[in-house]
């Protein structure tokens, strides 16, 4: 990537990041954090990129470990966010009721 494209993309993404969460209510703070956590799980793509090019044992072991960890991040991240949001959908019965089954 040339430096100008890189800086442009980064600066725009920073502003976009500020903008998209600026009006979130405090009840949604935890699900939003969880969603952001799931999204950075896309490091799985980076892990697959390096694992898919590894030829020697050490890089292979490290990058396959990275694939494993990144999968936990992204899959777990989206599933747990969904579970939090199920509770929001079933809201009126607030406190500690049994969770809605899937």
């Amino acid at each position: 990537m040339d430096v100008f494209a890189l800086v442009t993309i980064t600066v725009l993404a920073v502003f976009l990041g500020f903008e998209v969460v600026s009006k979130v209510s405090s009840t949604l703070h935890t699900p939003l954090m969880s969603e952001a956590n799931a999204i950075h799980g896309i490091i799985l793509l980076g892990a697959i990129m390096v694992a898919g090019q590894a030829t020697e044992p050490l890089p292979l072991v490290l990058s396959v470990l990275a694939v494993f960890l990144a999968t936990i991040n992204i899959v777990g991240g989206f599933v747990v966010t969904d579970r939090m949001l199920v509770m929001f959908a079933a809201k009126p019965s607030r406190a500690g009721k049994k969770e809605v089954s899937k």
Partner: peptide, 29 residues
């Protein structure tokens, strides 16, 4: 950072989005 070193634009965008929105979210929390 991984996006920059791997020249992958999606990792750069997603990572920066989370870095920026996460910072704002931390401050709001």
């Amino acid at each position: 950072g991984s996006g920059v070193m791997l020249s992958n634009v999606l990792l750069l965008i997603a990572g920066t989005l989370v870095g920026a929105s996460g910072t704002i979210l931390t401050i709001s929390m």
